[in-house]
Nucleic acid binder design. Structure first.
Lengths: 345, 345
DNA sequence: AACGTTAACGAAAACGTTTTCGTGTTAATA
DNA sequence: TATTAACACGAAAACGTTTTCGTTAACGTT
């Protein structure tokens, strides 16, 4: 490993002091033009670059942003990372990505490791396990240390920090409302056994939409499942034993699976049954027929989290004041729904 | 921002020297049991953690791995990152992710920024622009500095470093061979205008498979496209003007698009036409019918790159000796092909 | 009494910066 | 000529560690 050029070496070579070199490189007028030129030329020649670590130590900041997410293979999270990276990069920050893999322990370990100087602040979405446990001591700790924290998507209400979320209930409401507008009356919802808000909120939006349209809630059309197989099974039952003319699924995958089951039973989509998903991903775009979905705008969420964090880091926002930004969802109308001239949201 | 506990503070509080504290915390027997206990208790009470940055500076290593990839929203890359993260984490390394967004400039900038102490080594896949330019000075630079570099997928042959790739030609050969085995004789290939090896190699494998099966190459069945629309157009022409009983696409998306076009023209899949894609992603699994694909095993590729890098970093591999690992691909047989009892590869 | 040994600790250097506060030299001013 | 101001630079501290090399005191050995 070749030694890297340092101020000290330059100083020695040019027979000046380290301070002089440092100042000369910053074009400080405390140093004569002559010396400045000499130093700069030498530095350029040997391709001198200041050592990030030394600067971090000196300034007590790393210019790194720690991102802790449950998992990276989901489209939504990659979009968020993309957005974060975009803003971070533009502001001279690097992004350190850690995966909790939905594990509480790894989430804690990762946070603790990064919190000791590696990172100036955190952006995170909670692991499922963490949500179930409801143990947020690690979050409290970093917040108490004065490290800015921005949570998104899966957030902990009881932690005081900046947050970026979508209005799940409203988004679900809009989606279901759209289905109603296109003539659906027997709309089923396929949701998850969420220990968390997300599933509940989306179900709530579903119910409100029905209520506001004067449609009575049929409990048989409200199903909660975990896993692909369970979803397929539930869809089969739904289609076999119930009268259904619309299915609203709380994620993309469940919607696709429901569509597949509908196909198998020879339902026509969207003529016989409309299907709407949540979280716009690549599946929705290329499924057959393409799926109408609620778009969460992960990229914008990522950008927003990064903006909020950097604002805190650079002192543009007061430390002790926390905001919760709600990012608007939209509906991407595709061919799995009958899209009359109803206003798109 | 509350000050973090440091050795110096502990020393002051307990009225001993910094060195004593440092040694006591490491349970050095140079220090009396008494003092050790006292120091450790105090440190625990105040939740002392050593500052990563200071340690990095001292040890001249960051325990960070820099990963530079063109883009993160593709399933393949997220799988690779997952694999990297998995191994890195297990070995006490963090992963810094930077996106080049296929831009040469950002790739260079990111590398240069990370190379100054932030990172002990790099794992990367080249941006398209970089490949077109063929300008690899930034890679040379980090290699010359003695920083380990591992390239994967889109690699630069002329750079001496560790590499992890798949055998594109062989994989394509196997895929096409599989189609031939199931009775296809008029097999088309939809490839990209790659300035790079990948497209060429896969086409080569396609040709070899035909040759070895004694099937004459029909140039009309070899199409190169860029972009989704172009692909759809090409598929339409293929299906309209040529006799085709199999389509091999060099990526997942093109395969799906080809299937859609085939559906529109009322071809039955796989009865009339077999379709095979490359790069197993979520689309393949949930398309209708599910798509037979060549699986690249991104997770394993990621794990391998991380292993190789860490081996170098920890001195388990000689600095000046470079390996190229070829990760085996497999074929995931699904319902877009007629899967006779031919050996799966 | 002189010497060596050991235990327990501290001082200081080092990692590579930045920044404050001198200090010596020269030139301008009173 | 004496004073001041400007200029050009260096020394040293600081960021938080780790590690080497003392140093001191107590004790045991001849």
């Amino acid at each position: 490993m070749k030694r890297k050029m340092t101020l000290k070496q330059i100083a020695k070579e040019l027979d000046v002091s380290v301070s002089t070199v440092s100042k000369a490189l910053k074009d400080s007028k405390e140093i004569s033009q002559d010396t400045r030129d000499k130093v700069q030329a030498f530095a350029k020649l040997y391709n001198y670059r200041p050592n990030n670590i030394a600067i971090s130590l000196k300034n007590r900041q790393s210019r790194n942003i720690g991102v802790i997410i449950p998992d990276i293979v989901h489209h939504f999270f990659t979009q968020v990372i993309s957005g974060i990276e975009n803003i971070a990069n533009a502001n001279g920050y690097n992004v350190i990505v850690c995966l909790s893999n939905e594990s509480f322990e790894r989430e804690v370990l990762n946070m603790e490791a990064l919190a000791q100087g590696s990172t100036d602040g955190f952006i995170m979405s909670l692991a499922k396990e963490t949500q179930e446990k409801g143990d947020y001591h690690h979050l409290r700790e970093v917040v108490n240390m004065g490290m800015p924290l921005v949570m998104f998507d899966r957030v902990a209400d009881e932690i005081y920090c900046d947050k970026v979320v979508i209005d799940d209930a409203q988004a679900a409401y809009n989606a279901v409302n759209q289905m109603i507008g296109s003539g659906c009356r027997k709309i089923a919802i396929i949701s998850t056994h969420d220990h968390v808000s997300v599933g509940k909120l989306r179900t709530l939006g579903y119910m409100n939409a029905l209520r506001d349209a004067g449609i009575e809630l049929n409990e048989n059309l409200v199903v909660k499942v975990d896993g692909e197989e369970a979803c397929a099974e539930a869809a089969r039952k739904l289609l076999k034993y119930q009268v259904v003319d619309g299915i609203f699924a709380v994620n993309e995958l469940y919607a696709i699976i429901a569509m597949q089951e509908a196909h198998k039973r020879e339902f026509r989509i969207p003529e016989d049954i409309s299907v709407v998903g949540f979280t716009d991903g690549i599946l929705s775009k290329y499924s057959n027929p393409p799926l109408t979905t609620v778009v969460q705008h992960g990229f914008e969420i990522g950008e927003m989290t990064a903006k909020m964090l950097i604002d805190k880091l650079e002192g543009r926002e007061p430390e002790d004041h926390y905001r919760t930004e709600v990012i608007k969802t939209t509906i991407e109308l595709r061919e799995s729904t009958r899209n009359e001239a109803t206003t798109t949201l």
